[in-house]
Amino acid sequence: MKEIVCISGKGGTGKSSVVAALSWIAKDEILVADCDVDAADLHLIFAPEPEKSEEFYSGIKAEIDPSRCIACGICAAKCRFDAIHPVGNVYQVKPLDCEGCGYCFHVCPQNAISLPEQMVGHCFTSNTRFGCKLVHAKLKIGADNSGKLVAKVKNEAKQLAAALEKEYILVDGSPGIGCPVISSLSGANLALLVTEPSLSAQSDLERLWKLIQKFQIPAACIINKADINPNISHEIKKWLKKEGIRMLAELPYDEDFQAAIVNGNSVLEYNYTKWQPVFEKIWQALKETK
């Protein structure tokens, strides 16, 4: 089984459109995992119907039992995140500010503080209109994506892919360079970088590559909207060559991508004759990249 993780660093480069298009091409061979949990958009195209839904617990937050609190204020004095304040004649935790460090729990003389795990969202396994299965998650407000949640989504995907004898898992990875993207990359066989020729995307791509190198994972790159700025596209290509990253394709700036999304479609469904050959070629190249 081969795990291909699609990442971009910066948002808005068209990563989800690429994942959707490749999923359409490879729908019989793959299972898709959406780890871009903060802005999980794939469901808008896949129209998933959950066959399994599971509550997801992650992180802890302090809770003060008012019946035991004697308002000594030690917890508030120790909290570095300004998350505990007096309310009436007891102290209360502001959940959005609590970082779950547990310091207050250790110092409360009344043992009035507990650290319950938080139900932060749901993890789903769904059937999609493409035919392939999608593993995805939805977080509650203010809940952050975490390495743990990404690992959970990927574990579910792996088990299911093994059971269904799917050869590939296509992962829509998390943005940024923090813990979720580290967990997205962990265990991957190939990183597919989707970038665009802008100074912002270029600088984010370089930051991301530093991270990927730590994991010794091979990478391939698609430059989306390449004709928006041919000079930067050229610079990126030179850089890819220098770093030993396989250049897979340059996609033109094309309004088909937006139009497809508006219809809730992948770009292949929108204009099959135009895009099928393009993404078929990318998919074949991806399969043979090692």
Binding site: S58, S146, G147, K148
Partner: peptide, 8 residues
């Protein structure tokens, strides 16, 4: 390790 959020 599955229940570890950060620092696995």
């Amino acid at each position: 390790i599955r229940s570890v959020e950060h620092g696995a």
